[in-house]
Every structure is written in C-alpha cells, then in structure tokens.
C-alpha cells in the first residue's frame, strides 16, 4: 500500500521531469529565476509564479492563523457543550465546500468589496505606506486571492488546532485552574504550550492547502504573469497559470514550461511538508522525556 503511494509519487515526478526536459535543456536553472513570462514571444520564467504562490499562501496563513486560533480557543474553552457539536459541524461543512464555490463567492462578493471598500480603507490607513500596497488596481489581486485562501484555510486549521487543544489531558487544565488561573490563562499558557505540535501541523496543512489551491485562486487573482509584491496588483500563482494557460498552450516550449511549473510546485509542496515534519519531530523530542 505504502509502496503504491511512493511508486505513484515517483512516477508523477518522473513524468513531470520528462515533460519539462525541453525547458531544462534550453534554460537550465535560469528558468527558475526568469522574471519574464511571455508565451507569444517565446520567453518563459518561473519567478513570477513562484513568488505569487508564496506571497498569496503566506498572506493567507498570516490572516487565517490568528482567526483559527481564536475560533479553536472559543470552541475548546468557552463554548457550552450543547453548542460545540453544531459549531464543529458547521466548520466541517465549510471545510468541505468545493473551491469553485469559494471562487464564485470571491468574484461576486469579495472582489467588489476589496476594490471599493477595503482598498480605500487600507490605502488611507498607516498600512498604506507599506511597499506591499501600491496604487490601487482592480479587485482581482493578490490580496483578494489571499483573502479567499485564508477563508478556505480557516475551517481546516481551526479544526486541527481545536483537536490538538482538546487532546491535552484534563489534568493539565485542572493543574492550572487549581493554581488560581482563569480558563483563559490555562488555555493560553498551559494547554496551548502542549498543543504546540498540533498547531504547527495545522500551519503546515493549511499552508500546503494554500500552495496547491487552484480554482478559487484562478477566479480571483487576475491572472497577470508579472513579478510583483504589490498586493493590490493582479498576479498569478503556479497553480493558477497552469490551469489558466494549459488549455490554450501555444506550443511545445509553452507546454513544457507549464509542466516545469508543475514540477516546481511538487518540489515546493514536498519541501514544506518535509520541513514541517522535521520541525514537529524536533519539538516532540524536546517536549517528551
């Protein structure tokens, strides 16, 4: 069983490698740092998409994590038992919503909201001075894609963090409460510290989900192959450009370049997953005797 999984992964990686060979032969590793993506002119570089993927995923994680922690805290520490079940059910439901639904909602609700309400507010606020926020563009932007990703991530990360918190033994709660701690102090300083590994798992899973998410991003990011860190501009990601351009790819090099982007995505996902695993192992060593 495990063998099948490994074999499958190796076959996929091999397939992507073979499919992208023309790219590596032509440009080698320069493809990775190439800033230019212009299929009509036959110029292909991966950097705009790698950057877009990392920027939107990081942005999404930064927004989703505090909210998820808050929700998990509320559910574990401050929700009366009869309400806990329905709330968890609702979260699971959100987590299972198809991403195209998030995408549609993004187009019809979030894009105008960002363009006409959020961006003017942000630009007027002290945050407007940040280099991350340039002149306002349309609502189809890195920021909007990040927001949609955050919303998709929250049910997942909140559920994982909740489980990690709920798995901390009762005796630890009691130990803290018996010292005159409030429920909040017990959660924040004792229970959370022991659920740390679970929180990192949630971060890893959430980030992985954001890295690989395609549909909702294609629908909201604006799909412009430009290298930009300006969150108010349109951009693209590894997944988005593959989904967007594959059906209409203009030739052998275009196709091979898209396959090469797929390979990069695979390596990125594996890399983050592996790093997460290592971090978790390290933490477990330190916590357990």
């Amino acid at each position: 069983m495990a063998g099948t999984v490994i074999l499958g992964t190796v076959l996929i990686a091999g397939e992507l490698w073979i499919g992208s060979l023309p790219v590596w032969r032509e440009w080698g590793l320069a493809f990775l740092s190439g800033r230019d993506w212009n299929p009509a002119a036959g110029r292909f570089g991966a950097l705009p998409f790698v950057a877009g993927t990392l920027v939107t995923s990081t942005l999404a994680l930064a927004m989703a994590l505090p909210v998820s922690l808050g929700m998990a805290f509320l559910l574990v520490g401050f929700t009366p038992r009869p309400m806990e079940g329905p709330l968890v059910f609702l979260m699971d439901l959100l987590a299972a919503l198809p991403s195209v639904v998030f995408g549609l909602w993004g187009i019809f609700v979030l894009v105008p909201l960002v363009e006409f309400r959020l961006v003017p507010l942000l630009v007027a606020s002290p945050l407007g001075a940040l280099p991350l926020l340039g002149p306002a563009g349309s609502g189809f932007s890195l920021l909007t894609a990040g927001l949609v990703l955050a919303l998709m991530m929250i049910p997942l990360t909140a559920a994982l963090i909740r489980e990690a918190l709920a798995a901390v033994p009762r005796s630890q709660w009691e130990g803290a409460l018996a010292l005159g701690c409030t429920r909040w102090e017990a959660l924040r300083h004792v229970v959370l510290a022991q659920a740390k590994v679970g929180v990192w798992v949630a971060v890893g899973v959430g980030f992985g989900r954001a890295l690989g998410e395609t549909m909702a991003v294609v629908m909201t990011i604006g799909n412009r192959p430009d290298l930009t860190f300006d969150l108010l501009q349109g951009g693209s990601t590894l997944t988005a450009v593959i989904a967007h351009e594959f059906p209409a790819s203009t030739g052998e090099m275009h196709m091979a370049s898209l396959v090469a982007l797929g390979l990069i995505l695979l390596i990125l996902s594996f890399g983050f997953h592996g790093m997460g695993r290592l971090a978790i192992l390290g933490m477990q060593r330190r916590i357990l005797p």
Partner: peptide
C-alpha cells in the same frame, strides 16, 4: 492531584 501533573512544556 493523584497523578503528578507538572506542565511538561515548562
């Protein structure tokens, strides 16, 4: 308590 319950992460 009955079982020692120090805070293991501290």
């Amino acid at each position: 308590f009955q079982r020692p319950n120090p805070f293991p992460a501290m």
